[in-house]
Simulated assay, not measured.
Amino acid sequence: MTTVMPQSELTRKAIKWICESMEKSGEAPLNKMIEQAAARFNLSPLDVEFLQRFFREQGKG
């Protein structure tokens, strides 16, 4: 039986997965990682935009 998760929880899991994957793979392209996370966690286009903004802001800081 599948568990229904709030969308914000899926976004948090996607961020964690992307960060862990980037640590393991080194210089993987961020856009590629976001695309993979979107498919893996069934994210909406708005969630994908949020991830792109989130990681862009992290890069500036």
Rank of each mutant, 00 (worst) to 15 (best):
L46F: 09
Q58S: 08
Q52S: 13
K32S: 13
L10T: 11
F50G: 05
A14H: 08
G59A: 12
R56E: 10
K16S: 11
G59E: 13
K16Y: 08
E27V: 11
K32T: 15
Q52H: 14
F55Y: 12
P45S: 04
T3H: 06
E57H: 13
V48F: 00
E49R: 14
L51T: 08
E57D: 13
L51R: 11
M22R: 15
P6M: 09
Q7F: 00
Q7S: 10
E9W: 00
S44I: 00
K60Q: 09
F50S: 05
L51V: 01
E35Q: 15
S8E: 15
F55T: 09
F41S: 00
Q52R: 15
G59L: 04
A28L: 02
L46M: 10
W17I: 05
F55E: 05
L46S: 12
L51D: 03
L30H: 07
E49N: 13
K13H: 05
L30R: 13
N42S: 13
K60L: 01
E57C: 08
P45M: 00
I18T: 10
E27F: 12
R12Y: 03
G26D: 06
A28I: 09
Q7G: 07
V48T: 11
K24A: 08
Q52A: 12
L51I: 00
G26K: 10
K60C: 00
M5N: 09
F55H: 08
R53V: 02
G61K: 11
W17N: 04
R56M: 04
E23T: 15
E49K: 14
N31L: 06
F55C: 04
Q52V: 10
K16C: 05
F50Y: 14
R12M: 00
P45E: 05
K24F: 00
V48G: 04
N42W: 01
S8H: 15
I34S: 09
